Computed example of a mutant assay.
Amino acid sequence: MRLLFVADPLEDFKIAKDSSFTMMREAAARGHMLFACEPRDLVWERGGRVTARLRQIALTSDPTAWFTELETPSTPLAELDAVVMRKDPPFDSEYFYATHLLQQAEREGARVFNKPAALRDHPEKLAILEFPQFIGPTLVTRDAGEIKRFHAEHGDVILKPLDGMGGMGIFRVGPDGLNLGSITETLNKGGAQTVMVQRYLPEIVQGDKRILVIGGEPVPFSLARIPQGSEIRGNLAAGGKGVAQPLSARDREIASTLGPILAARGLLLAGLDVIGDSLTEINVTSPTCFREITDQTGFDVPKMFIDALEAALRRT
């Protein structure tokens, strides 16, 4: 098969932990042809189809020069077997435009994973609102008065922007309310931007668990990202320590409920973030932790993903 990965620049991949790289390696081991491009390479013109300037690559065994490249002419995406959208957040205007170009490619016959419309319909912070039975006390607003009221009710809260990634822009305000007004002004831009506020979950000390759901089925291990030192964030990008562990009964309940729903909407891969017993985010753009879970448990996450991708292609 001819597989295209729409991603960040290949030169920026950190292959020791990059989940997209593990997908590529598994696909290459099965004999599939690998192509890559960035969202900026997508082009559409009236009378034609969505095309991209592709980089055909072959993987090497050298970690410092992990691929070789063949020049490939602009190719219609519909002529490839699958397009895997793996561009990292932020989900900004350019990401939004890329999903529309990929959706046009779908109309022309391309098979895109995750589906572009589903990416737009599931903003990673706000997607949890659909599943209130699994989330802790949560407020979404741009109103400073509502944030103050929520803090007064719950005492210890987390505030975060809706477009952040890797733990960026997350603040904790304790019962003393110290700096609540200043933090609110910083995040809501004086009432111009919406923020999320959640009751602080002390279970974060045991880790912010990433549960991968592939083809509607959960990977049997999560990666608990444990904050280090005085840090409140477990994100690996913020210095958290990743520890793989079997899913708890509550983890399985959440994943088994959401998995079939998300898969039916065209989300072949999703990453559920759970602290304690509470769902906190649904990641759909480029969920990670493949490498860490595989290395620590022996469960082959990339194999499960490529199996699911091949099965999805056989159904279409």
Rank of each mutant, 00 (worst) to 15 (best):
G191Q: 10
G191D: 07
G191M: 08
G191C: 06
G191I: 09
A192V: 12
A192G: 08
A192P: 05
A192Q: 11
Q193W: 08
Q193M: 12
Q193R: 14
Q193V: 14
Q193I: 11
Q193T: 13
T194S: 13
T194Q: 11
T194V: 13
T194R: 12
V195H: 06
V195D: 04
V195A: 13
V195Y: 02
M196F: 07
M196R: 10
M196S: 07
M196K: 09
V197L: 10
V197K: 05
Q198D: 04
Q198V: 00
Q198R: 13
Q198F: 02
Q198L: 04
R199Q: 15
R199M: 12
Y200F: 15
Y200W: 14
Y200T: 07
L201R: 10
L201I: 15
P202A: 11
P202I: 08
P202R: 08
P202Q: 11
E203A: 15
E203Y: 13
I204S: 06
I204T: 00
I204V: 12
I204G: 03
I204N: 00
V205W: 09
V205G: 06
V205T: 12
Q206D: 15
G207A: 12
G207R: 06
D208C: 05
D208Y: 03
D208L: 02
D208N: 05
K209C: 09
K209Q: 13
K209E: 07
R210N: 00
R210C: 00
I211V: 15
I211W: 02
L212F: 00
L212D: 01
L212R: 00
L212I: 04
L212H: 00
L212E: 00
V213K: 01
V213C: 00
V213R: 01
I214A: 02
I214R: 01
I214W: 00
I214C: 03
I214S: 01
I214G: 01
G215N: 03
G215R: 00
G216M: 05
G216N: 07
G216F: 05
G216S: 10
G216E: 03
G216K: 05
E217K: 15
E217P: 07
E217T: 14
E217M: 12
E217A: 11
V219D: 03
V219I: 12
V219F: 07
P220K: 06
P220M: 02
F221N: 09
S222C: 13
S222E: 12
S222K: 14
S222Q: 11
S222T: 12
L223C: 14
L223S: 06
L223F: 02
L223A: 12
L223Q: 03
A224H: 11
A224T: 10
A224S: 14
R225I: 10
R225S: 04
I226L: 10
I226T: 13
I226W: 08
P227G: 01
P227M: 02
P227A: 04
P227R: 01
P227V: 11
Q228M: 06
Q228L: 04
G229C: 07
G229W: 02
S230H: 14
S230Q: 13
S230P: 08
E231M: 14
E231Y: 08
I232L: 10
I232R: 10
R233Y: 09
R233L: 10
R233K: 11
R233E: 03
R233V: 09
R233H: 10
G234V: 12
G234R: 02
G234Y: 05
G234Q: 04
G234L: 04
N235I: 02
